[in-house]
Computed example of a mutant assay.
Amino acid sequence: MPLLALTVLTTEWTEGNMALATDEAFEQSHTTGPSAQNEVVGDRRARERETWITQEVPIKILHEDVVESLHEPHCPDPDVYIILPNLMQLKSISDRFTKLASSDSKGQRSGIVVTDPAASSAGATALSTNSAPKLELSANMHGKLRLAIATDDLRIASVWSGLVNPPLDPAHITQDRASQLPSERMREAGDDDEAGWAKVRIDGKDWGRVLSVGRLSPKVVACFINETALVLYVYLPGSWNGEESCLTHLFSAYEYICKIFKE
Rank of each mutant, 00 (worst) to 15 (best):
L3K: 11
L4C: 05
L6R: 09
T7L: 09
T7E: 12
T7P: 08
W13P: 05
N17K: 12
A21S: 14
T22H: 10
T22A: 06
D23T: 13
F26Y: 14
F26D: 04
E27G: 13
Q28C: 13
H30K: 12
S35P: 00
A36P: 03
N38C: 14
G42D: 14
R47T: 13
E48F: 08
E48Q: 11
E50S: 12
T54S: 13
Q55P: 06
E56K: 07
P58W: 00
I59M: 05
L62E: 08
V67I: 06
P73T: 07
H74F: 00
C75D: 15
I82W: 07
L84D: 15
Q89K: 03
S92A: 12
S92C: 06
D95W: 00
R96T: 01
T98M: 02
K99R: 09
K99P: 00
L100D: 03
D104I: 04
S105M: 06
K106N: 04
G107L: 10
R109E: 09
S110V: 15
S110R: 15
S110F: 06
G111A: 15
V114W: 01
T115F: 03
P117R: 07
A122H: 03
A124K: 01
T125N: 02
T125L: 09
A126E: 02
A132L: 03
P133V: 01
P133M: 04
L135H: 08
E136N: 12
L137T: 08
S138E: 05
H142A: 01
H142N: 02
K144F: 00
K144I: 01
R146N: 14
L147P: 09
A148T: 03
D152T: 06
I156S: 10
S158P: 00
S158C: 13
W160Y: 10
S161N: 13
S161P: 02
P167D: 15
D176R: 10
D176L: 10
S179G: 04
P182V: 11
E184H: 08
M186T: 09
E188Y: 00
E188N: 05
D192G: 10
D192N: 12
W197H: 09
A198H: 10
A198N: 09
V200G: 03
R201A: 09
I202Y: 01
D206M: 14
W207V: 03
W207S: 03
G208E: 05
G208L: 07
V210R: 12
S212D: 08
G214L: 05
L216M: 06
C223N: 05
N226L: 02
E227I: 00
E227W: 01
E227A: 03
L232C: 06
L232E: 03
L232N: 00
Y235F: 14
L236R: 01
G238Q: 05
W240Q: 12
W240G: 09
W240T: 08
W240V: 14
N241P: 08
G242D: 01
E244R: 14
E244L: 11
S245A: 07
S245Y: 01
S245W: 02
C246V: 07
A253V: 01
Y256H: 02
K259E: 00
F261P: 04
F261N: 05
K262P: 01
